[in-house]
Design a protein around this nucleic acid. Sequence first.
DNA 1: CTGTTATAAAAACGTATGTTCGTAATTAAA
DNA 2: TTTAATTACGAACATACGTTTTTATAACAG
Lengths: 207, 207
Amino acid sequence: MARTVGSNGPKTMEAIRKAGLRLIYTQGYEAMSLRRLAAEVGIQAGSLYNHITTKQDLLFDLIKVHMDELLERLDQALDGIADPEDRLQAFIAFHVGYHIARKREVFICYSELRSLESKNYDIVVGLRQQYERKLIGILDDGVASGRFTVADTTVAAYGILAMLTGVCTWFKPAGRLSKEEVTGIYTGMVRHGLVRTVDAPAVAEAT
Amino acid sequence: MARTVGSNGPKTMEAIRKAGLRLIYTQGYEAMSLRRLAAEVGIQAGSLYNHITTKQDLLFDLIKVHMDELLERLDQALDGIADPEDRLQAFIAFHVGYHIARKREVFICYSELRSLESKNYDIVVGLRQQYERKLIGILDDGVASGRFTVADTTVAAYGILAMLTGVCTWFKPAGRLSKEEVTGIYTGMVRHGLVRTVDAPAVAEAT
DNA sequence: CTGTTATAAAAACGTATGTTCGTAATTAAA
DNA sequence: TTTAATTACGAACATACGTTTTTATAACAG
């Protein structure tokens, strides 16, 4: 009835984050009880407070860390690419790949926003806007340089993001399509339309 | 301390559904307490049970009624239209219009799925699949009759749905774009791509 | 008017929640 | 070896939850 053999702070914290992510993904933040979380980690509920400050802080931390990483990796993916067309292609590939790999993190970032206290909420929404603006920037650049034709830059950006993010809801690693095939299909749909009529064919689809 | 003057069953039930919808939309199902719901309606928590059987049943009823209406209205919108191209156009217009008008219902249908007990969950997922299959059917018909070219029917269908449903997250009735303009933009993006390159222009955009 | 049904109040029930506290044992530092 | 910092247990706290029950009055049907 005290500190247990082999107990280790950082290791426990990581277990809390991992179990918390899974439980919030499957049950939702409000529905996840700290007793259940503690049980998954293998400790008592009160012991959680040696590692977290509040339940809310755990949620915010999970989301914040993910958003920071998302932004950082996007910068890496776009680094050194200048041409708007190539940047758009790189954005699509990055977004699809990342959302397939981190579907749980992505999901709670959207679905648990309303469980964040207003201060935390504002921070996360700000980060998400930063991400959105990267794509809007790519489209604007392409339009400004005369390379792109876009009906409405903002609507197109939100449309692309919604369409690509949807991959989380149906993609299965062992499914019919590979990650690369999916990326290719999405890229084609962004560039040439999702449904084309035969009597009005698009131009050659070089890949 | 008993039945109040002017109390009326159906009227109270409607008030419960209306307040419930709003509270679940803003706070989430788990976060909405029945005491808060009752207060919004102007009755005591226990009195809710003269109108609902359980909290879960209220959620399921809200979602089920919405899904039924969604399917019925879609059938009306497509009724009498035979050409795949026209049907696709009608689907897009219907989906965008309905999702703009009922953004709260739509939102809880997606976000509160995991709060449904498994039996209720299965029913709702079944209804949603019915809806998705309507669109897939339109695409399949177009492909079969040689009118459409689609990279991957299923991916395209999910892509269209995700892209169109995204309208809920940003559309404001008093905003820059009207419902009709938005529908037009989305239709164009589905048919000709979200971003086109200038040196590979699509064909004339007849409307 | 009488009898029945519908609706709400009020109080209570059992349970679950996030969180705190005191204590004990382990680990790490001196 | 001694000392200090970590980490977990176990019990408890106050509060909130969904739900049930009893009771009283309003609405309605005959």
